[in-house]
């Protein structure tokens, strides 16, 4: 490796280690973390409430928009989806698409 590149690699590592990149991903968008009160983010929970983590964002957006418009039967999600703008719904859907179920020891 050329000296300049080696020095650069060290600098990059230092910056990455000290910067935000070391944290676990981008911060969740507004509203996203509240969902896991009901929608299990941990593996191994038996519940009739569907999981959101790892779902296709397009499917989540479609479901939330249908709840919001009253097109999909609901108990509580129709009331909750109405509290979110289209942009917020999209951001939450993308974030959940990137999450993976937490494995608890």
């Amino acid at each position: 490796m050329e000296p300049v590149k080696a020095a650069l690699a060290v600098v990059v590592l230092l910056v990455l280690a000290g910067g935000d990149a070391a944290a676990s991903g981008p911060p969740p968008p507004p509203g996203a973390t509240a969902c896991s009160g009901c929608h299990a983010a941990t593996a191994g929970i038996v519940t009739p409430v569907p999981r959101l983590v790892g779902r296709k964002p397009a499917d989540l957006v479609a479901a939330l928009q249908d709840f919001k418009a009253g097109r999909r039967p609901a108990t509580v999600m129709d009331r909750i989806a109405k509290g979110f703008s289209d942009a917020e719904i999209a951001a939450i859907a993308v974030w959940y698409g990137e999450q993976r179920p937490e494995r608890r020891r």
Partner: peptide, 28 residues
Amino acid sequence: GAGGISPLEAPRSVRQQEAQYADGWFKT
């Protein structure tokens, strides 16, 4: 425009479903 309570008129199946969701909520 968001939030509110369960429908005042609803079949018992909806009340049963909400009881199951309540149980799921506690576990989750």
